[in-house]
């Protein structure tokens, strides 16, 4: 019933993952870094769901794991933004390259 091969979904996930990775490692704004990480998680979710439908042993488990991933990602974003705000109150900046306190 489907005309779209599994490799197309995986390739899409790969491209999104690479974009997310590049963004996470180059952007200076911490919020964008966080959101890039979300993008990478989404790419992973696409993979999970793809395999749940078209993997070696298709089953609902892939979708269950995607649910967990989404839940963890949500928690991560909540804590991440909270930390970011606390940092911003102290440092008056959201630039990640100015946050190098741990070096000292």
């Amino acid at each position: 019933m489907n005309g779209v091969p599994v490799s197309a979904y995986l390739a899409l996930a790969l491209i999104l993952f690479c974009i997310g990775l590049y963004g996470a490692l180059t952007k200076r704004n911490t919020i964008i870094v966080l959101i890039s990480i979300e993008l990478m998680l989404n790419a992973v979710n696409i993979n999970l769901i793809t395999f749940s439908k078209m993997g070696i042993a298709p089953s609902i488990t892939g979708q269950i794991f995607a649910v967990f991933v989404i839940a963890v990602a949500a928690a991560e974003v909540a804590v991440g933004i909270a930390i970011l705000l606390a940092l911003y109150r102290n440092r008056k900046t959201v630039n990640i390259d100015e946050m190098n306190e741990l070096k000292h």
């Binding site: 996470a24 490692l25 870094v33 990640i96 946050m99 190098n100 070096k103 000292h104």
Partner: peptide, 8 residues
């Protein structure tokens, strides 16, 4: 340098 991005 303390730059997380460089490390990663």
């Amino acid at each position: 340098s303390g730059q997380v991005q460089t490390y990663s």
